[in-house]
Every structure is written in C-alpha cells, then in structure tokens.
C-alpha cells in the first residue's frame, strides 16, 4: 500500500521531481555512473536514468489502468450476458473464451501485437484481450450465484427490466471478487506489457518505458549495472505493490478465503 502510494505520488508530481528531460541525450556523457548531477547515472546515449525512471512510472501505471479497465469492461459485459441470459449466448461467449484460454497468454499477446504492429498502445490492447476471459468467468460465476437469490427472483416477479436488475442487484454483488482480481491484474498487466517491450513488441524507441529500458541495456549490465538494475527493480516493486494491495483487499472484501 505504501509502495503504491509512493508510486502514485511520484507519477503525479514527475515534472517537479525530475532533474533532466527524459529525451535529453548527451552522447559524450553516456554510461556515466550515478553522480550528483545524474542520480542514477546515464544510459547508453547519455540520457538521465533517474528522470526516465520517473517518467516511466507514469507509463506503467497508465498501462496497468488502461489494460485492466479494458479487460474488466469487456470481460464483465461478456460474463454478465452469458451468466444472466444463459443458453445459446452463454454457450457462444464461453466457447469463445475457451478458445482464447487455449493459448498461453504470452504467445497470444505476441501474435496480437505482431498483427497490430509494435507499439505501446497495441501492447496494451493485446494484454487487455488476453485477460478478458478471466473477468468474464468471474462475472459469470458470480451472476449465476446471484441470479437464483430470492430478491432477484422477487425483483423479476415485480416486473423489473433486465438492465435494471443487472445494474442494481447483480453488479453490486459481484464487485468484491472483481476488484480483487483487477488489482492483482494490474500487476500481471504491467509485467506482461514490460515483457512485450522487452521482446521489442511494445514501446517505441526512445520512450522511457521500463521494459524497453531493460531491453536496451541488457547487454550493458557488466559495464553499467545501474541501467539494468534500476528499471528491473522498479517493475518489481510496482508489481509487488499491486500484488500486496490485491492480497489485502482479498482479505477485507472476500471473507470466504480469509485464511489466505
């Protein structure tokens, strides 16, 4: 929680905290070790690692938020429809989800990004698509459980519309597992997007994205370890932050599995 608060604060106030512009290169000062002017040293073309790391936190949080929001929205919609209406719709949607689930997520994401072209936006889209089935399943399971509850049956008996029931009764009841999963999903999304960037399928040359920074400096680990350690630790701690938060939320919101 604390880690995350720090990250969010940092990403909001980036312009005040940085010492250099993230794309300001001075090739004569490349691979300089940490010093008073460059707190975390410089990278392979002489850009300031510390400033790029800070700008990168914005990108990573954005990746996490957008990707998760995308898969939560679409996944929930699918899950709701499938769970609530059942029958053919359920069959069709869930079969589709099964097909997506039949492929390892990294592989699927690679293929999707290759089709759409390598860019950060497309990496986000790919990660989003990959995680849709998870949310669809959670929502569907929750809807199935809620649907048979007495007050839902009652609401339907009084003639409430489907949408009304979905919005006022079903959704609020499914929120808890969804929030937990989404928080944990932020971590996975950030990791996956970084992995794509690492394979050269994400951020564009020069963008201060952590996965890309790792890719670009991997080979320099022996000469300039700070260029590799810094973004690696940054990814690690941000993902750890989301996972800790997710765990805590699960304990609070989901009493059934409190023992975890």
């Amino acid at each position: 929680m604390i880690i995350l608060t720090v990250f969010v604060l940092i990403s909001v106030s980036v312009p005040f905290l940085v010492t250099h512009q993230p794309d300001e290169a001075d090739i004569s000062k490349r691979l300089a070790p940490p010093s008073r002017t460059h707190w975390l040293g410089t990278d392979r073309v002489g850009k300031d690692v510390y400033s790029r790391l800070l700008y990168g936190s914005r990108i990573s949080i954005k990746i996490g938020l957008v990707a998760v929001a995308g898969s939560v929205l679409i996944g929930s919609l699918f899950g709701l429809l499938a769970g609530y209406y059942g029958g053919q719709i359920d069959n069709l949607l869930m079969r589709g989800m099964d097909i997506l689930l039949a492929l390892p997520s990294v592989l699927l994401a690679i293929v999707i990004v290759t089709i759409l072209g390598a860019s950060l936006t497309n990496a986000i889209v790919a990660v989003s698509i990959v995680y849709i089935p998870q949310y669809a399943r959670i929502l569907r399971a929750a809807v199935l459980k809620v649907k048979e509850l007495e007050y839902v049956l009652a609401a339907r008996a009084v003639g409430a519309s489907d949408w009304h029931i979905l919005l006022t009764v079903v959704i609020p009841n499914c929120l808890a597992p969804l929030i937990v999963q989404a928080t944990l999903g932020m971590g996975s999304a950030i990791l996956d997007a970084a992995g794509l960037s690492f394979l050269g399928l994400g951020a564009k040359v020069g963008q201060p994205e952590w996965g890309l920074m790792l890719r670009d400096h991997f080979t320099l680990i022996r000469q300039a370890p700070w260029t590799v350690l810094a973004p690696g630790l940054a990814i690690f701690s941000m993902v750890l932050g989301f996972n800790l938060l997710g765990d805590a939320l699960r304990d609070i919101l989901d009493p059934q599995v409190k023992t975890t």
Binding site: A194, F198, G232, F236
Partner: peptide
C-alpha cells in the same frame, strides 16, 4: 512468494546467468 510472482522472469534469468 509474492516477490516471486512480481519479478520479471527475463530479468531474473539474466541475473542468474550473471
């Protein structure tokens, strides 16, 4: 265990080699 799921494996691999 939480750290284990949070670590980028491509990073871990290179660190281990090194």
């Amino acid at each position: 265990a939480l750290a284990g799921v949070s670590i980028p494996i491509f990073w871990l691999g290179l660190m281990l080699i090194l």
